[in-house]
């Protein structure tokens, strides 16, 4: 078991080396995308600042500190998921073009292998932004900030699971680009970007089940701000369920993978 973990760690390290060397080939593009993503996120926060400043210290029950947390934890999760494991977004293309074959003939977990095969440049901007805003949200309290970074990082698992499930659907229904965009960007991220207080029972139920916005936002934030262990158990329990569903679907879907022949280069 330990040897397997060590081997996967070395594989991850070598994959990251390759990814960073690829980034070095396109330094300017990387820098521009990172800076613009940082600014993009900054404008959302500015919007909230204006709304709350106009309503006194808080708008309803929503404080600026709460908004800072919301624009830190889920953003770190997104940054970790797609900067380090950006290849997961390529999974659908690999299935459609038949280039998944290369990964299937290698002795590593196929999904992990694909995940580590490329990075999404702009996600670096999210990661840096989330950490900077997290420092402000926790008011430089190292314990809170430590948990914020750890839970933010682990929250990436939820993004990766949902992304993997949606991309694997390509095997059954063909191109899922639009479904993925709607599910991740319009639903999961949008719901996670507002305080949990604004959602009613039905929507809340969805956010704790099929659209796991709660686990990349409300649940970890509630733990960081209250240190109530029940949120931590809730977080890890949900993570186990999502990983188990993803693993089962992966096994089921790969059995039905039909491959294909196209001329393509790995990038």
């Amino acid at each position: 078991m330990l040897t397997a973990v060590k081997r996967y760690f070395r594989f991850f390290k070598e994959s990251m080396k390759c990814n960073f060397k690829s980034i070095a080939e396109y330094k300017s593009s990387f820098l521009v995308q990172t800076i613009f993503m940082f600014l993009n996120n900054g404008f959302f926060l500015l919007f909230w600042y204006v709304v709350i400043a106009a309503s006194g210290e808080k708008a309803g029950d929503i404080t600026l500190n709460k908004i800072l947390y919301i624009w830190s934890v889920p953003v770190i999760s997104f940054g970790v998921a797609f900067f380090f494991f950006g290849g997961v977004r390529e999974l659908g293309r690999h299935i459609l073009e038949g280039t998944l074959d290369v990964y299937l003939t290698q002795p590593k977990n196929v999904i992990l292998n694909v995940m580590c095969s490329s990075m999404e440049f702009a996600a670096a901007g999210d990661l840096i932004y989330g950490i900077v805003v997290g420092l402000i949200a926790t008011e430089f309290n190292l314990l809170r900030f430590g948990f914020l970074v750890i839970l933010g990082t682990l929250g990436a698992v939820f993004y990766i699971c949902v992304e993997t499930i949606l991309r694997l659907l390509t095997i059954f229904i063909g191109n899922t680009d639009n479904i993925e965009h709607t599910y991740i960007n319009t639903l999961m991220i949008s719901f996670a970007s507002y305080p949990s207080e604004i959602y009613g029972g039905g929507i809340k139920f969805l956010l704790y089940t099929v659209i796991p916005s709660a686990y990349i936002s409300f649940v970890p934030i509630d733990f960081i701000t209250t240190f109530d262990i029940k949120y931590l158990l809730w977080f890890f329990g949900a993570m186990l369920v999502f990983v188990a569903i993803t693993a089962a679907l992966t096994k089921f879907a790969l059995k039905r993978y039909e491959s294909g022949n196209s001329i393509a280069l790995r990038s």
Binding site: C18, K21, S22, T99, D101, V102, N261, A264, R266, S267
Partner: peptide, 12 residues
Amino acid sequence: LFGQKSGLWMHL
């Protein structure tokens, strides 16, 4: 080796 699919990283 699949003649039509590369195992090498294109930019490296």
